[in-house]
């Protein structure tokens, strides 16, 4: 089940956040060797504030199988702050209607390609449903260039903002790797593509009324 938590709810859900920050430490600091601010085996940075929105895919034991953090680009954008050179298209990386996805992890309890697809599909579907509900125009993210193909395969609407650029290497990327930025337009088409990839016919979340064949346009926001 995918739950959505606001950064302002950190006190209300201490267990979920504790697990999240520890998982992020394990994946990004220990495994990938990124140099990130870390304390007591938790990875928390300046974008983990009240405006951040967290998507957590939990298994029956409430272990996190997948997660992504969404931040409003007007205030918090990794792309604008650290990787502005990745935007070659001339688009502004900050906009009221654009959120940025960071700290993306998919780690299903069961290790198989199928489980990975399902976990990724669940997370991305709820993410898209939420974006439609928020009436966003785009979501954007910085990725390892090697993963571009997997996003293009999910939806043809994947728009690169520039070419891959080298970035300094952590332990996992000796001599450095290549990163780039892309955007997804927030549309029923992309939601359909993501659902098709996930093998889902219907909505995943309470936001998921969108894209049902009998609905022409999204209804008024729920909150």
């Amino acid at each position: 089940m995918v739950i959505i938590l606001n950064g302002s709810e950190r006190r209300k859900h201490p267990d979920h956040f504790e697990r999240l920050f520890r998982l992020r430490y394990r994946v990004f600091v220990k495994q990938r060797g990124w140099s990130l601010p870390a304390m007591n085996n938790r990875e928390i940075d300046q974008y983990d504030d009240d405006d951040a929105v967290y998507f957590l895919d939990l298994d029956d034991e409430e272990n996190i199988q997948g997660t992504v953090r969404m931040t409003p680009t007007v205030k918090s954008s990794l792309l604008a702050d650290y990787f502005p050179h990745l935007v070659e298209s001339g688009h502004s990386p900050r906009s009221q209607r654009i959120y940025e996805a960071t700290r993306y992890i998919v780690l299903p309890s069961q290790k198989s390609r199928e489980a990975l697809r399902l976990a990724k599909g669940r997370l991305l579907t709820v993410l898209l449903e939420w974006c439609l509900d928020k009436r966003l125009s785009h979501l954007q993210t910085v990725i390892d260039a090697g993963t571009l193909s997997s996003f293009v395969e999910i939806t043809q609407q994947t728009m690169p903002l520039g070419l891959p650029h080298p970035y300094g290497g952590g332990r996992g990327t000796p001599g450095g790797g290549e990163c780039m930025a892309f955007r997804w337009p927030i549309s029923l088409q992309v939601l359909d593509d993501v659902r098709a990839y996930a093998g889902l016919a219907g909505p995943m979340s309470r936001f998921g009324e969108f894209g049902r064949p009998d609905r022409g346009s999204p209804r008024a926001p729920l909150h």
């Binding site: 935007v87 070659e88 298209s89 001339g90 690169p160 520039g162 070419l163």
Partner: peptide
């Protein structure tokens, strides 16, 4: 306005 070089522009 496009900011990159010819490589970036052509590719996008």
């Amino acid at each position: 306005s496009f900011m990159g070089d010819e490589y970036g522009k052509r590719t996008l």
